[in-house]
Design a protein around this nucleic acid. Structure first.
Lengths: 50, 50
DNA sequence: GGTGAATAGGAATTCAAG
DNA sequence: CTTGAATTCCTATTCACC
């Protein structure tokens, strides 16, 4: 689910500095969320993140 | 010459918004300066540009 | 020390497909 | 409308070479 994934992304980014989409991918996986780099790229754009 | 090239880069960037190193490369060429993407990447780092 | 060619690396976009 | 795989695009780095 997109909104769930995006809210977890915001939590992760809020807590620590994430330096790459692949790292974010790993952190999301630890939270039980699987997504590809393409999807994370879109989420980051949608959320207005750097 | 490196310093000459870098000062022209600063002039170009000051005037307009440059969105890629290839575009900068083209603009430099119009000024008679030839350089590769690798060199421009180093110049941008040296000049502290984004 | 500065440079270009080639390569690696990361991110955005395309192209089906669900 | 959302996604993953593949591709494309852009930048940084490596590896000679001068």
């Amino acid at each position: 689910m997109k909104s769930r994934r995006q809210s977890v992304i915001l939590e992760i980014v809020d807590g620590r500095a994430v330096s790459s989409q692949e790292q974010l991918r790993t952190l999301l996986k630890e939270q039980g969320i699987d997504a590809t780099q393409a999807t994370l790229s879109r989420d980051i754009r949608d959320l207005g993140l750097v």
